[in-house]
C-alpha cells in the first residue's frame, strides 16, 4: 500500500441541503471568471454609463429640465430612457458575454467535459440551464442592475418628482425584458459555443453576429433600406423591447417583426444545442 494512503472511507451524507445541478453549474460559471481581476475592471467600465446617467439624473431632478439639453432621451427617467440606456450598453454586453460565455460549452467539448457532466445525475436541461444562467447573470449585471440602482437613486434624490412608478414599474419592466432578452441571447451564444471546440472560433462568430449585423443594419438604414435592419441581431431585442417599455420602435421595422425574429433565433439556438450537446468524446 502506498505510504501516502490515508485509506478510502465511504461517504456518510450529512443531510445538508443539496443544490440542483443547474445552480451548481451556474455558480461555477459565474465565480470562475470573477477570479480574474481584469474582469472586475471591465464590469466597472460597463457601469460608467450608469454612473454618468446617475449624475445627470441628479442634476436634472435638482436643476429642472436644464439637463435635457445634455444627452437628450438617454438621460430621461421615463421607461424609454432606460430602454435606451440598455441599448447603449450593447458594446459592454458584446464584450462581457464574449469573454464569459464563449468558452462555456466549447471548452467542455474540447476537454471531453461533457462525458464527465453526463456521467452525473443531471440532464440536458440542467446543463443548458446552468450555462445559460451564467450568461444571463453577467448580462443582468450590466443592464438590469444599473437600471434598478438608477431607479432607486432617482427616487431617493427626488421622491416627490419621480413617484412610485419609477420604483416599481420600471424595474419590473426591465427585469422582464432582461430575463427574456438575456435568456434568448445566452442561448444563441451557447449555440455558437457548442459548434466549436475553441473559444476564439466562438468569439469570431459572435463578433460577426453582433457587430457585423449591426454594421449591415446601419448601412441599410443609411441607404434608406429600413427593412434590412432585420439583420441587426441585438437591434431586434431593443426594438421588440419597445413594446414592453411603451416606447417608440428603435428600428424602422415593426417591433412585432423583431419579436418574431428573436423567437426564431431562440428556436434555432435550442435546435442547435439539442443536436450538439451529447456526452460523446471529441477525438482530436
Amino acid at each position: 500500500m502506498p505510504v501516502y494512503e490515508r485509506g478510502y472511507t465511504h461517504w456518510q451524507p450529512s443531510g445538508r441541503r443539496v443544490n440542483p445541478a443547474w445552480l451548481v453549474i451556474a455558480r461555477r460559471g459565474i465565480t470562475e471568471p470573477l477570479k480574474r481581476r481584469w474582469l472586475f475592471l471591465l464590469i466597472l467600465m460597463a457601469w460608467v454609463p450608469a454612473i454618468v446617467k446617475g449624475g445627470i439624473i441628479y442634476f436634472k431632478l435638482k436643476a429642472g429640465n436644464l439637463m435635457d439639453l445634455v444627452g437628450g432621451g438617454w438621460t430621461s427617467i421615463e421607461p424609454e430612457g432606460f430602454l435606451r440606456f440598455i441599448e447603449g450598453q450593447r458594446f459592454s454586453v458584446f464584450v462581457l458575454l464574449a469573454i464569459t460565455g464563449a468558452g462555456l460549452i466549447s471548452t467542455d467539448r474540447r476537454e471531453n467535459g461533457m462525458s464527465l457532466y453526463f456521467s452525473r445525475p443531471l440532464g440536458l436541461l440542467d446543463y443548458i440551464g446552468g450555462k445559460a444562467l451564467t450568461i444571463v447573470a453577467f448580462y443582468c449585471l450590466i443592464t438590469l442592475a444599473p437600471v434598478c440602482v438608477l431607479c432607486l437613486f432617482s427616487y431617493l434624490v427626488a421622491p416627490g418628482a419621480t413617484g412610485p412608478d419609477l420604483l416599481l414599474m420600471t424595474p419590473l419592466r426591465t427585469l422582464v425584458y432582461c430575463l427574456l432578452a438575456g435568456t434568448s441571447i445566452s442561448l444563441v451564444l451557447l449555440a455558437f459555443s457548442s459548434l466549436g471546440t475553441r473559444s476564439v472560433f466562438v468569439m469570431v462568430w459572435w463578433t460577426v453576429l453582433v457587430s457585423g449585423t449591426e454594421t449591415v443594419g446601419a448601412i441599410a438604414e443609411g441607404l434608406g433600406r429600413g427593412s434590412l435592419q432585420a439583420v441587426n441581431f441585438l437591434g431586434q431585442y431593443h426594438n421588440a423591447g419597445s413594446l414592453l417599455f411603451g416606447a417608440p420602435p428603435r428600428l424602422e421595422i415593426s417591433p412585432w417583426i423583431s419579436l418574431a425574429i428573436v423567437v426564431a433565433w431562440t428556436g434555432l439556438a435550442l435546435w442547435v444545442l439539442r443536436r450538439q450537446i451529447r456526452p460523446v468524446e471529441v477525438v482530436s
Binding site: W11, P13, S14, R16, R17, V18, A21, R120, P121
Partner: peptide
C-alpha cells in the same frame, strides 16, 4: 453535480 451538499 452528483448530488452532494456543497460542504460535503
Amino acid at each position: 453535480l452528483s448530488g452532494m451538499p456543497a460542504r460535503d
